[in-house]
Design a protein around this nucleic acid. Structure first.
Lengths: 123, 123
DNA sequence: AGATTAAGTTACATTATTCAACTAGTATAC
DNA sequence: GTATACTAGTTGAATAATGTAACTTAATCT
């Protein structure tokens, strides 16, 4: 496709450079972290407690889960509520803002469910 | 929401556990790496050369770009073609499979373009 | 009493990512 | 003719992110 790159003198110039992190990249920094998407996805049907999330995300360490949940909370995608049971439990719930990302996650889910078999990546 | 978590005896059981990496997570492992989405996005309108990609993704090191491109090629999302010019240049192009992810990336783009201003993350 | 639950935290090991400098051969401006 | 920018990367060392396993405190069930 023409016009996206140009040579001025001997200097090559790109016309469609990303203004620092471009939208795709900015989005990925919020949702693309390891486990982040999965966490959000598992909250889509209602609040879930910390250890239950840990069980749902077989493979993720509690450390990572705690950190990702903290980030998601900071950024307003989820809320954290302490439930006065014995022992005390903590429920995470998705916010309206968080839910606005679900459409996109669903798109991703559909895409990866149709992956060719040789694309089953474990790394 | 009821029914996703259950207590059997004193043992808590999750009914919707991810079978190892769940679809969301599998997708993210392919598209969610740092710079991966951006790279693919910048190839959507036709082939682009290595250094031009590097210019477009201000912020990413050539090392990362080279590695991400290698991964994308291995997984069949893009192709790599050496062009016999002087000096030799290399063009990257998106495959049909790669293009199948664009819908999802576009969804992400729209989402992050509508982020509240306080969500402008630089980390 | 002993095991299990809650929600994390801690220290340490392994990976990922970044940064800056470098390769080698060619073309272009001055 | 010489300096400079170009090509597509690679290299090594520094920093950041992630993983692993053990641990915490207090309460409940067997």
């Amino acid at each position: 496709m023409a016009g996206r790159v140009k040579t001025v003198g001997k200097r090559r110039i790109v016309l469609e450079a990303c203004t620092e992190p471009c939208p795709i990249e900015r989005g990925m920094r919020i949702l693309g972290g390891k486990w982040t998407g999965s966490l959000l996805w598992h909250l889509k049907d209602g609040p879930v407690r910390f250890n239950d999330l840990a069980r749902m995300l077989g493979g993720a360490s509690k450390k990572m889960i705690a950190e990702r949940l903290r980030q998601l909370e900071e950024r307003g995608l989820i809320t954290r509520t302490v439930v006065q049971s014995a022992p005390v439990s903590v429920e995470y719930d998705i916010t309206e803002f968080g839910a606005s990302a679900l459409k996109f996650l669903d798109e991703l889910k559909v895409w990866s469910e149709n992956l060719p078999k040789d694309q089953l990546v474990y790394s």
